[in-house]
Amino acid sequence: MTAETTMTFRVNGRECQVAAGPAERLVDVLRSRLGLTGAKEGCSTGQCGACTVLLDGEPVASCMMLAADAEGREITTIEGLAPPGELHPLQQAFLEHGAVQCGFCTPGMILSAKALLDRKPHPSDEDIARALVGNLCRCTGYRKICEAIKSYARSTRGRSKRVRKR
C-alpha cells in the first residue's frame, strides 16, 4: 500500500483536508472520502463527462485527474451550487424545461453549463452546444438542455438590465 498524505483543497467554498494516496483520483476523493456523490462515474476514461467538476471555475473530468494535482485549488461540485434545500436558478431552469430525465448526466451537464455562463453570460446556440460536447446525455436528445441554459441566460440578461437602470 502506498502511503497516504494529507491534501488540502477548497471544496464548495470550504477548506478541506483529506488523507489520500498519491495515485488516488479526484473523483474518488470527492465521492468516497468527502461523500460528494453528485459527480457520477459513467466511463472512467474521460469520455462521458458525468464526473465533471469545476476546478478554479473550469470544467474537468474528475475521473482523469489525480487528487494530488488538485491540491490547493478551488473545486466546485454540484452540491456547492446552492445551499442545501435550495436550487441555483440554472438548476431550476433544467428542472422546468424537462432537461432532466434519468439525471445521471445532469450534475456534470449543469457544471459545464455553469462554467460557460460564468465566462460568457449570454452565449450563442453554438457556444452552448460546444461547451457541452464533452457531456454525453443519452436520454434527452440535448434540445431541452440547451433550452434550459438559454432561458437561464435570458433571465439574467433581464436582471442585469434592471440593476443597471436603478
Binding site: T37, E79, L81, L87, G103, I110
Partner: peptide
C-alpha cells in the same frame, strides 16, 4: 416538471 427532478438537479 419531474417530481424527482429537484434531487436530480441537486446531484442528491
Amino acid at each position: 416538471p419531474r417530481l424527482d427532478g429537484p434531487e436530480k438537479v441537486a446531484g442528491r
